[in-house]
Design a protein around this nucleic acid. Structure first.
Lengths: 340, 340
DNA sequence: TTGAAAGCGCTAACAT
DNA sequence: ATGTTAGCGCTTTCAA
């Protein structure tokens, strides 16, 4: 066991000031590019080179203390647990960086007590705002403590409508998928939906139905089935559809996992995708959609954009530019591969 | 546009002290559970209730400044970009939490300049140490600036061997996979490997070969093929193996994506998994391994554990308990599903 | 144009 | 056992 080596004390502003032969104030002014105050060109130069020479690095914490602002946002999420929606983090992270904000991420397992504790700790770090993100689109109950600071929900919404939120536009997504199938001349389009009640199931179905109606097709209830949201569920539901006296020529699966199962069902009957049966998914889970054979055409959930929009909203709110608890809806784009 | 509402100034220790009628020192002592100093039981009580009453919340930044330690670690990674290995973040996060450490995550896209900048900003936040994590196991070059603070690599290693690292035990993983197949009485075991040269390919192959040899089987070179690391690559390689005059009865795929393709190749020939051909994968990509039909037996990459071990190591180093640039190897467990 | 001084919230050495 | 005081590194009035 080696003794702990005491790290050399970091260079401070005082050191720079001393080295440059100016006051600490001057250093602060120069280093913060405060051009509202007029400083001698020479002073500026001296400070700059002294800082460079000494390898000065500002201490963000000290600055935060003095300025009473941390430049941090807290991101509370169960997402770290479920890699599916991890792009939310990336989107938020990138967007925060461009604002010179930091993201303090607290992962939770949606245990309310732990969640409150996590937020509590973020508040101790004096985060200026909170982003509360969920793995799958749903209504949530945010711990009361979050009210202490501006808070924005991402990929979920407050059941009581007290917070602004950023959510995917499920309806348009469902519409796009169906429309794509229609444009390939399919008229009998099966729909394997998720368990009813959740926003994804409701919105995607609405989109499906309205696309059909716009195309002058009266929805046929036998073509609508709900399946367990897994590959096995998709397999079973697809079988059900294919067993119909008048089976569909295309199937819209409300998620990619079910589409994965549908592929198996279709292939097992010796049918070809998309030649005999076209398939379209939802979620754009890369690992599935990208690697199925043929590649699965699907609708993408805009996780990254939602994360970015969340930070946007938060920035606007903390800047006092916005205050309404509005719901921002983000588009779900269609991703063409080869299954239609 | 509403005017920015000035947030009420937070309750400080001074307020608590005042309210309790004691000194700031006393408050600090009580709130930090410093039992080495003796305080009147009454004082302690008064402070506690004053703090509760006022809703006092410590200011982590101020404490960091005074103590000259931040309790923060920086996690530099490209992982946020690629959800695959995101469990590293979770493992590190959880482990850090139990130490009351925070993780400041900086996502990079492995652009060296951006990486250096990201680390620079982490250092401005006065992180006490750095974890540098990669999406896939490989040798990396860490920006020089990382030397300023204890640094640990996770799922990668320094090409020049200057940093301690935590990596998966690829060899044992390959061994386990092969052994599992052997235990199911397979003697002709095909191996679809990754592009040679990377640690995963080298280690997994070593494990494969040594398991065979231990079982008294002389490796047959025609059973070893390398494929493009995708489903299509796996498909092609599996075809190649199945076309052999004496085809294998089991295939070990060096990753799950290739196993996904192998499934298709096997099924297209009307063969059954595992009855006619057993398949085993590597990586345990949930979305693939869990949803393939039948479920894919595979070897898991211990991302979460690696993240946790990384923080462990860092904690030991910053505590001065360890200093060697050792390589820690983490076990890759076998995950049984139904493909063997 | 520059500098002195106070203060941000907290800890810790030192007195009392 | 409790209080005083001096920082921690930085920003920001306010004077000079």
């Amino acid at each position: 066991m080696s003794k702990k080596t005491p790290r050399a004390r970091a260079v401070t502003m005082k050191d720079v000031a001393h080295h440059a032969g100016v006051s600490r104030t001057a250093v602060s002014l120069v280093l913060n590019d405060r051009y509202d105050v007029t400083l001698a060109q020479d002073t500026r130069q001296r400070v700059l080179s002294a800082a460079a020479e000494l390898g000065y690095r500002p201490n963000a914490g000290a600055r935060a203390l003095a300025q009473q602002r941390s430049d941090w946002y807290g991101l509370v999420t169960e997402i770290v647990t479920a890699p599916f929606a991890v792009d939310v983090i990336k989107g938020a992270q990138d967007r925060a960086m461009t604002d010179s904000k930091y993201l303090l991420i607290a992962s939770t397992e949606s245990d309310p007590a732990a969640e409150t504790a996590a937020i509590e700790r973020l508040l101790e770090q004096r985060v200026e705002g909170l982003i509360y993100a969920a793995t799958w689109h749903r209504g949530v109950t945010v711990p009361e403590i979050a009210r202490e600071v501006p808070t924005v929900l991402v990929n979920c919404f407050d059941i009581e409508g007290r917070y602004p939120a950023v959510v995917p536009d499920e309806r348009v997504g469902g519409y796009r998928a169906t429309e794509r199938l229609l444009s390939a001349d399919h008229r009998r389009i099966g729909f394997i939906n998720l368990d009813p009640g959740i926003p994804a199931a409701i919105g995607r179905r609405e989109g499906y139905l309205s696309a059909l109606r716009e195309a002058g097709i009266e929805p046929d209830e036998t073509l609508e089935v709900t399946g367990h949201a897994t590959a096995d569920g998709g397999f079973a539901s697809a079988e059900q559809l294919l067993d119909l006296p008048e089976p569909p020529t295309a199937i819209f699966c409300a998620n990619d996992r079910m589409a994965m199962g549908a592929y198996d069902a279709i292939k097992e009957r010796g049918l070809r995708i998309p030649h005999d049966v076209a398939v379209i998914g939802f979620d754009n889970q890369e690992l599935i959609a990208g690697y199925l054979r043929p590649g699965l055409t699907t609708v993408a959930l805009p996780f990254e954009q939602m994360g970015a929009r969340g930070v946007d909203l938060l920035a606007a709110i903390t800047a006092g530019e916005s205050t309404a608890t509005k719901i921002v809806t983000v588009d779900c784009p269609l991703l063409e591969r080869s299954s239609v």
